[in-house]
Amino acid sequence: MYALAKCSLPRRVVGLLSPANAIHGTTTRSRLLSTLAILEQRDGQLNQGSLNAFAAAKQLGGTVHGFVAGSNVSAAAQEAAKVEGVDQVIKVDSSAYEKGLPETYAPLLVENIKKGKYTHVVAGHTAFGKNLLPRVAALLDCQQISDITAIENDKTFVRPIYAGNAIATVESSDSVKVITIRGTAFAAVTPGSGSAAVVDGVDPKADTSAEWVSEDLAKSDRPDLGTASKVVSGGRGLKSKDDFDRVMLPLADALGAAVGASRAAVDSGYAENSLQVGQTGKVVAPELYMAVGISGAIQHLAGMKDSKVIAAINKDADAPIFQVADVGLVGDLFEKVPELTEKLKSS
């Protein structure tokens, strides 16, 4: 409690002075900023990808607090507290928040945001963040800014619209900026030797109007699609689920890559829904993206065109994917991919 008082007191003092200080420009303003980064956890394990919210929070300037809630989140909170530049981590230990149901989690966040007088709230544009943050924004009467890829200043943000076919720069006039970030646009943050205070947040114990029933998550030993440094992705050209598994999985293993798929491959049942890369699936930006049997529709490009290096293997030399690929190989994927896999293994 001491740490909490120590942190919140100076901010309140500064807050009182703010109208007079507004004319002093950005250095003064940056001191008034305080950002709450919402972290995701599962079974007490921090989702490492959600630490990217800290990267965005640090870019905003001002104080940076983290927030984590669920059953037994002390260890996760301690881990988040090790990230350099983080001033405080707020944890709420309660099984009511374990599954992140927005009906209870949103009122919880609203209480903590109001108490901390945060100017910015940041979460990843993940299934969790997308489900939760707009509800929080509405309760705070703020217009959320979704899936931002860059921060220009404390109220100006850049985000792709029209499936990445246009880039909008928007300025928010809300007193609290509620933001979701595109994880791949903000460099990964890892716990270091920081030592932020871990404090208990307020728990409004809101009534729940929804219950969690079950989940069915794909189990995989391969890297997580959203954060992998290499991704191999298959499309309709794979022809069947058996062929998809036979051709793509060994290539992924030879490269140490995550497996992705186009919407066509997912709709045809060749791959799990959760592997879909595109506007309506995951957005990835790995070091290497290898598109196999994917034509390159705009909905797919929206999900991968920020990859550092794009390679494509397709038998149609006119496929649009070749217009964005750094290196393209025209040929039958059923011959070329196994050959590539063998050569990668033996090198």
Binding site: N165, I167, S173, A325, V327, L344
Partner: peptide, 28 residues
């Protein structure tokens, strides 16, 4: 609540051309 300051085209991505075979792909 939001003022659109600018809408621009995304930076175009240039295709890097094609290679002949798998060895070419690996070396590129």
């Amino acid at each position: 609540r939001l003022k659109v300051l600018k809408v621009s085209e995304p930076a175009p991505r240039q295709g890097g051309g094609k290679v002949e075979d798998v060895d070419g792909l690996i070396s590129k």
